[in-house]
Design a protein around this nucleic acid. Structure first.
Lengths: 223, 223
DNA sequence: ATCCGGCAAACATCCGACCATTAGGATGTA
DNA sequence: TACATCCTAATGGTCGGATGTTTGCCGGAT
């Protein structure tokens, strides 16, 4: 194994063993490279790789720190992968969403807080049928993201956020506006919010399934 | 933005735009660094980062290639994150599994092929109640992985594979053997396989929900 | 107490040299 | 011809040092 990969493993092990905890600062590059027994160049490659997946946070002129290691790490990784797979297997990605979103809605119905409900309703009130496509896309992302957050499961939230490729969503919404389906879609959002406010997990799950499936079917036909 | 991050973005853009396709070979480090307008050292950091998440495949003495870009990329990313979060939020991870696994089972019931069914049954026949813990863990991983593969959705398969931290699974199984729950768990596997062979998606989903939830509850109590 | 300048620490980038490995062609042999 | 072996060029792997840039912090002035 290359020294760089060894370094990645060693740093990872230090994290798992607890030797390094969230927020900790790593030794300076020079010291760390000596400790790991490699050159600064090679060690920087390892750090850069860990930075890409948001495990480390490098601050120029300051030092290198361990990130919070929140499940949010997943978002970046998912989004990166999803970005690369645009247009290729959108339908497969939608299929995964169709599994996760209803689960998310169901959990949210049981756990959503009053402030979150208020936020959700306020969000819904901001859009009309004549809202611009860009705003509709932003609203859609925020709507689903808030529900995911309300699910109380941060891994789930991260996965769903990462799964939301805004470019794909944009194209879908553009199609929806052309097909005059905006009203129906927004009505579905409304119904979901209503189910959440009543804490009706079963209904929220069903409504979300219908909602995502509807978009999925539209997409399937338009391809 | 740092030159290295720019390089990552540029390479990523080349992939999205189709300028670079799966299997393609990148220019030698020297050429590529000149083309991207940075030093070889900095470019290597970018390549290393993309290699960590399995976007690039670097072969010493040969060249750097674009990986298949299969959804399998997700497995590595998920596994890395899950590894780092061991013991911290296992229950949250299990909650995600409880959403995905039933969906996986349901799809598998509709799509599983004869050879896959045969493989699944053969797999089940290899374990007994007196099988070693290590083998039970391996069997369990293989069982769920095969079902995920049979779902026909490679993103789903990747997510589930990544979600399966073998170390956590090992600890769970060790507990199960102590609690004499092996027989029951294996019986559940059997029932799931039977539902799959009948193509009963509804039942497969329910059985899988029960199966995963059972382990989750055991884990909840044992923590 | 507040503001500001300067210093030291730390990361960012680049360069050039040399090592290690691989693929593939050249060569030799049956 | 077919095959095994050797050689070489191409390519990535690693290193150490030089230099630039940014940041945090301390001491002094107001």
């Amino acid at each position: 194994m290359a020294v760089t990969d060894e370094a990645i493993t060693k740093i990872k092990d230090m994290l798992i063993s607890g030797e390094l905890k969230a927020g900790d600062r790593l030794p300076p590059e020079k010291d760390l490279s000596e400790r790991l027994g490699l050159s600064r160049s090679s060690m920087r490659e390892a750090v850069k790789a860990l930075e890409l997946i948001r495990v480390l946070d490098v601050r120029r002129g300051d030092g290198t720190y361990v990130t919070s290691l929140e499940p949010q790490l997943l978002t970046e990784a998912m989004a990166f992968v999803v970005d690369l797979h645009q247009d290729k297997s959108v339908l497969e990605l939608f299929e995964v969403r169709r599994i996760l979103e209803p689960g998310s809605a169901s959990l949210a119905a049981q756990r959503i807080t009053e402030p979150q409900l208020a936020e959700l309703n306020a969000m819904i009130d901001t859009v009309q049928e004549d809202t611009s496509v860009e705003d509709l896309v932003a609203h859609d992302l925020a709507f689903h993201s808030l529900i995911a957050k309300a699910s109380g499961n941060s891994y789930l939230e991260s996965l769903l956020d990462g799964l939301s490729s805004s470019t794909v969503r944009a194209r879908v919404w553009r199609g929806l506006t052309q097909d005059k389906a905006v009203t129906a879609t927004l009505a579905e959002h409304n119904a979901i919010a209503a189910a959440l406010s009543r804490g009706d997990a079963e209904l929220a799950r069903a409504l979300m399934t219908v909602h995502v499936s509807g978009v999925e079917n539209w997409l399937r036909q338009s391809l």
